[in-house]
């Protein structure tokens, strides 16, 4: 009887978002009760913030065309990592000199900063992220055109 009642609620897809929100809520409460979680001091991608750098938070340092050390899980797979950290196009260089916020333009600004970790050692992520975005655009444009 109780199973029938539960399945009756579950089979209606209008309840789905509420059910999922409830499940998330329970899990998050459990998560809060399980705090504190241990934090590993030995992080794979260490990050230092230099608020005065205009490339912050993507400033990996080093003079142009000189290889700097980029910490990665498998350095042997990315032999060229760290070679282009501080290469900026003339326009980006100009922007970096006049504003402190060039680091925020990483995605919208071609020829800007190249984040070695994002684009070199974790390149597949970047590809998949862009693909998700394009798929969303494809769906939206199809519906807009046909709808």
């Amino acid at each position: 009887m109780i199973i029938r009642r539960i399945s009756h609620i579950l089979c209606n897809y209008d309840n789905l978002t509420r059910l999922f929100a409830g499940a998330c809520l329970l899990l998050f409460i459990a998560g809060i009760l399980l705090l504190p979680l241990p934090y590993s001091e030995k992080q794979l991608y260490p990050k230092t913030f230099d608020r005065n750098s205009s490339l912050d938070p993507y400033d990996r340092g080093g003079p142009p065309f000189t290889q700097v050390t980029i910490v990665s899980q498998y350095p042997e797979n990315s032999p060229t990592a760290g070679l282009v950290t501080s290469y900026l196009t003339p326009f980006s260089l100009f922007l970096s000199q006049v504003t402190l916020h060039l680091g925020t333009t990483i995605v919208s600004h071609p020829g800007g900063i190249i984040d070695e970790i994002l684009y070199n050692t974790r390149g597949l992520d970047t590809v998949v992220e862009a693909t998700i975005l394009f798929i969303a655009f494809a769906i939206a444009s199809y519906i807009y055109r046909k709808g």
Partner: peptide
Amino acid sequence: QYGLVALAATVPLFAGAAIYAAVTGSL
């Protein structure tokens, strides 16, 4: 409705990955 749930599901999904990274230091 499915889209809404799939959208909301990315929150625990990416939060899980973030906790993996914070606790173990690796992915």
